[in-house]
């Protein structure tokens, strides 16, 4: 009998192959190889078994099923930006939330009856989500929100980029390069919408008289997000039009001073917002410290941000006309950059 292959020796460990017993008894070389194979197999077995000690316990299957299929109680739910929320498209949403909640606090436009903000660039501001002072949501309590069009701004599944364009109000940019094996999984789009925030003393008694009745009109842009599957991992390419905020009936400088003095805005965040040079064109991106690693970078020739968290990495940049974001699980940044270079 000729010497035994490594694969057969390995299989012999799991299912004894008596046909090779005789050869192993006579061939020192094969016996030695078997010992090596056995040693490596035992080492791997011990190492991988030990992973159980630090892994999870019992799971609640019904609760998990309810989470992924809340509407039908059984059917597969739309992925609805579950992972993208934490990375690329989530950054987009973050930007919009920032604009709705934080941006007005950082705008020092000229003192005029009608002042406006138009996003042209981005800049990170950081905050500690564990800071009890960071209760941005409570800011909405001091204004009356007219969000009749907000439903139109909800993301929805569409068939293709053409359909997305009909909803978002702009033609989504094609992507000229994608990693090997990337398959389009779905396209989501949202329509432009307008949110009006009106300040009044009935909600905030300490409001300065000059701000009573003042209004911020936030034009939330449409968005398009294309989701790809890359060998089991998610890649998202998203974009939105520019975001615009108009102030009516008051001086934005006064609005800003008032909002930055509110206890809901952490002191350090207020300081960072005050330090932004060009209030009228810079969109602040709030990033929770310790949860997201970020750094300034150049993306597709434009100033942008690289963000990484435990779920993936993303690039966010503003090319003058569009806010763009690309994010992925597990894809290296060089690959993300290559995708970014091919957008538009």
């Amino acid at each position: 009998m000729t010497c035994v292959s490594g694969a057969r020796l390995r299989a012999h460990l799991d299912t004894p192959d008596h046909a090779i017993d005789g050869h192993l008894a006579q061939c020192a070389a094969c016996a030695q190889r078997l010992a090596g194979v056995r040693g490596a197999a035992r080492f791997a077995a011990r190492s991988i078994a030990d992973l159980d000690a630090g892994a999870g316990g019992a799971v609640d299957v019904d609760a998990a099923l309810a989470r992924v299929a809340p509407a039908t109680g059984a059917g597969p739910a739309s992925r609805r930006l579950r992972i993208p929320t934490a990375i690329a498209a989530g950054v987009m949403v973050l930007a919009l939330v920032a604009a709705l909640v934080v941006t007005p606090t950082g705008r020092q436009a000229a003192a005029s009856f009608l002042s406006s903000f138009r996003s042209e660039r981005i800049q990170v501001v950081t905050f500690d989500p564990r800071d009890p002072q960071a209760a941005f949501g409570a800011l909405s309590d001091i204004v009356e929100v007219d969000a009749a069009e907000l439903d139109a701004g909800q993301q929805r599944e569409v068939d293709d980029l053409a359909a997305a364009g009909a909803i978002s109000g702009f033609d989504a940019s094609p992507v000229s390069w994608l990693p090997d094996g990337a398959m389009l999984e779905g396209v989501q789009a949202s329509a432009p919408s307008t949110v009006r925030l009106t300040f009044g003393r009935e909600r905030a008694p300490e409001l300065p008289a000059a701000l009573d009745g003042a209004r911020l009109v936030v034009s939330v842009p449409g968005t398009v997000a294309s989701m790809y599957d890359v060998d089991g991992a998610m890649l998202v390419v998203a974009e939105s039009a520019q975001l615009r905020v108009d102030a009516e009936g008051a001086d934005l400088g006064q609005i800003r001073e008032y909002l930055l003095s509110r206890p809901e805005v952490p002191t350090d965040l207020a300081r960072q917002l005050l330090a932004i040079d060009d209030w009228t064109t810079t969109l602040p991106i709030p990033v929770p410290v310790d949860e997201v690693v970020w750094q300034d970078t150049t993306v597709a020739g434009r100033p942008g941000l690289m963000l990484q968290d435990t779920m993936g990495s993303g690039l966010l940049w503003h090319d003058g006309e569009r806010i763009r974001a690309i994010g992925a699980e597990g894809l290296d940044v060089d690959a993300l950059r290559r995708v970014a270079d091919g957008v538009g």
């Binding site: 020796l9 194979v37 080492f43 190492s47």
Partner: peptide, 15 residues
């Protein structure tokens, strides 16, 4: 039949 091949290579490379 190829599982053994990958296992052998994988276990040795892992170690």
């Amino acid at each position: 039949g190829s599982v053994g091949v990958l296992l052998t290579r994988g276990e040795q490379a892992f170690r």
